[in-house]
Design a protein around this nucleic acid. Sequence first.
DNA 1: TATGAATGAGTCTTCATTCAT
DNA 2: AATGAATGAAGACTCATTCAT
Lengths: 212, 212, 212, 212
Amino acid sequence: MSRHNYNEEKIIAKKKYIMEIAKEIFFKKGYENTSMNEIAKQAKMAKGTIYLYFSSKKDLFFSLVYEGLEILEKMIKNNIKSGEKGLDKILNMGRAYIQFYREYPDYYSFVIKYESEKADLDTNEPLVLNSYEKSEEIYDILKLLILKGIDDGSIREDIDINKTSMLLWLQTIGVVQQYELRKKLYENWDEKFPSSSILDFYIDFMEKSLKK
Amino acid sequence: MSRHNYNEEKIIAKKKYIMEIAKEIFFKKGYENTSMNEIAKQAKMAKGTIYLYFSSKKDLFFSLVYEGLEILEKMIKNNIKSGEKGLDKILNMGRAYIQFYREYPDYYSFVIKYESEKADLDTNEPLVLNSYEKSEEIYDILKLLILKGIDDGSIREDIDINKTSMLLWLQTIGVVQQYELRKKLYENWDEKFPSSSILDFYIDFMEKSLKK
Amino acid sequence: MSRHNYNEEKIIAKKKYIMEIAKEIFFKKGYENTSMNEIAKQAKMAKGTIYLYFSSKKDLFFSLVYEGLEILEKMIKNNIKSGEKGLDKILNMGRAYIQFYREYPDYYSFVIKYESEKADLDTNEPLVLNSYEKSEEIYDILKLLILKGIDDGSIREDIDINKTSMLLWLQTIGVVQQYELRKKLYENWDEKFPSSSILDFYIDFMEKSLKK
Amino acid sequence: MSRHNYNEEKIIAKKKYIMEIAKEIFFKKGYENTSMNEIAKQAKMAKGTIYLYFSSKKDLFFSLVYEGLEILEKMIKNNIKSGEKGLDKILNMGRAYIQFYREYPDYYSFVIKYESEKADLDTNEPLVLNSYEKSEEIYDILKLLILKGIDDGSIREDIDINKTSMLLWLQTIGVVQQYELRKKLYENWDEKFPSSSILDFYIDFMEKSLKK
DNA sequence: TATGAATGAGTCTTCATTCAT
DNA sequence: AATGAATGAAGACTCATTCAT
C-alpha cells in the first residue's frame, strides 16, 4: 500500500471520528444550536483542525446527511428483495423507511432536516445532486413495483401508476415525519398517544387501498 | 364611536400593516434569516416602533401563525358543513386543508413551521396552548365524522376508529408538507413533477381506502 | 387670587402627584431600573405629560432629592434647638440624621444616591448649587456648636475645630450609609446583625470622644 | 517550562492587559457608562476577543473588584503585623484601609461600587461569596484585636466588644467613602477642603475614643 | 394642557471562519 | 498536520426624549 493511501485512510478515519462526535451533538441540539466550538471541544481538537477535514459547518452536517441517505438506500434495497408479489415488495419498502426511522433516529433527523431545506440550497452542491439522484432511483423502483403488482394481480388495475407512486412516496415520508413531530409534542403534554404501532397500521392501511 | 375605539382601531390597523410586511419577509426568508431590522426597514419604521406593537420577534411571528390557524380552522369548519354522509364530510375536511395550503401558502408555511417546533416551545406560552387546543378540536371532529360514517354506512366497519383518525390526520398533513417540499425542489431542477392535482388524487385515494 | 396663581397651584399639585408616584418606584427599583414608561403608567398619564412638568428623568429624580434635603434640613434645625450644652446639641444633630434615615428611608436613599453622584454632575445645575449651600450651612452650624461646646466646657479643648467638624460630618453620614448597606447584605444572608441600635451606640461613642 | 505553561502565561498576560485597559475606563466613566465597545477599541482588539478572556462585562468588572479585594486584604494583613499592643494594631488596620484608598484609588472605587451593590447581587455568584468571606475574616480579626487590646490594657474595658468592632468597621469605611465623595465635589467647586490629612486625623480620633 | 406614537442610537453578546505559528 | 487566538458583522432588544395632533 502506497504512502498516499495510508494517509488517505488516516484522513478518512479522522473524518469518521469527527462525524461521530458531531452526530451526537447535532442530534441533541439541532443544527442552529450547535456551535463548531462545542464540536471541537467534545472532539478534543482545535477548532481549526475540523476545518481541515470539513470546509464548513454545512459540509460537516451534510456529510452526516449523506451517510444517512446511504443507510436508508441500503435498507430499502435490502427489504424489497423479500416478498414475492409486487404489493408485498411495496409494503416492505414502506416498512424499510419506518425501520430506518426506528433504528437510526439520529440519521433520520438529519435526512428530514436536509429534505426540508434542500429546496433552498445551492443547486451546485454535489450533495443536493446525489440526494436527488437517490430519490429518483427509489422513486423509479416504486413505479416498477407497482407495475409488477398490477401484472401479478396483487394490486388493483384502476389506479394511475405515476400518481400512485408519487403519492405513496409523499405519504410515507409525511406520515413518519408527522408521527415524529406529534410524538414529541404529546410526550411533552403527558398525554396518551397511539404508540409507534400506528406506523404498522399505516402499512395495513396502504395495503387495503392498493390490493385488488 | 368613541375616541377610544378610534385609537384602538388605528392600533389594530398598524399591527395588521406590520404583520403584512413581516409575513412576506418571513415567508421569503424564514424565521431565523429574517431580522427585525429588515422588517422595520421594509415597513419604513424605526426598529423601536415595531416593539410598540409586538413584544418580541417571536410574538410577531406567532401572531402570524395564530392568524393562519384561525383561517385554517374556519375553512375546515366551513367545509365540513357540506356533504351528507360521514365519508363526504371527511373528504371535505381533507380538501379544506389542501385548499388552505393552496390559497394561503404563506400562512401555511407559518403553521407548518410552528407545528414542527411547538414540541420544543415553552408550554406556558398561551399561543402553544391555543394551537394545541385547536388541533385537539379538529382531531375530535375527525373522530366523530368517522363514527358517523360507520353509522350511516358510508365507511367500512372493519377499521379501528382511534388509529384511523390519527392516521388520517398525520397522513394529510404529511402528504401536503411533502408535496410542498418536493415541489420546490423539483421546480429548482426544472423537471416535470405531478402538478398540484396529486393532492386531489390523494383525496380519491383516501376515499377508496375508507368507503365500504 | 389671580388666575395665574390658581394655575400655578394646580401645576404644583400635579408635580407633587407625579413625584409621589415616582418616589415609590425609584425607591423600589432604583434610578437606572426605573423607566419613564412605568412612572407614566402608574400615574395614569401619558409619557409626554410628565415632560410638561419635569424637563427630564434626572429633573424628576432630583426634585425628590431636593425634597429630601429640605426634610433633613428641617429635622436637623429642629433637633439642635433642644439640648443646653454644645455637646448635647451636637449629639442631637447626629440623632437628627439617624432619625431622618429611619423615618424617611426613601428620601434618605435619594439623598445618598445624589450625594454619591453629584461630584460627576453638571456644575450648572441649580440643584447641585442648592444642595451644596445646604451642606455648607449645616457644616457651619456644626462648627459653631463645637465652639460653643468648648466654651461651655462640655467638649474637650484639645481638638482641632475645623478637622473635627468635618470629620463628624463625614463620619455620621458614613456610618449610617454603611449600616444601611450591610443591613441589606446581612438580611440576604439570614445572619444576625446588630440591630439598628448600633446607630444609637454610635452617638454614645461620639459623646465619649468629644466630652471633656 | 512546558509549552502548556507558556500559553497559559500568555493568556494570563492578555487578561491582565485587558483588565488594565478596562480598569482605566471603568474608573473614569463608571460601570454603566462603560461599553464593551469602548474597551475593545481602547485595547485595539475586536469586541469578540474580549469575550475570549471574560465571559461577560460583569465578569470583567468583577475580576477587577476581586483583584482590589486581594490587594486590600494583603495590605491589612501586612499592616497589623506591626504594632505591639492591641490598640496599635487596630489603628494600623484603619491606616491600611486608608492607605489602600490612597494608593489604589481605582481599585478602591471598584470595591466600593461592589460593596454598595452586593446586597442586590446573585448570592450564587462565587465572587459575592468570596468577598463576603473576606469581609467576615477581616471583621473577625478586628474583634480579636479589641479583645487583645482590653487584655493588654491598651483599650478601655467599658465598651461592648461586638458593637464596637462593628461600629469601627462601619465607621472607617464610611469616613473614607464620604471623604472621597466630598473631595471630588469640593474639587469641582474649587474650594478649600481639608486635605487628605483628615483621614489621619480620623485615626487619632479613633485612638482617643478607644484608649484607656 | 395633554397625548402617546415614533424615534434610533446604543446595549451586550454570539459564532462561523481565517491565518500566523 | 494542527493549533486556537482573533475577527467583526450581525443579532434582538431598550428607552429617554420629541412632536404632531
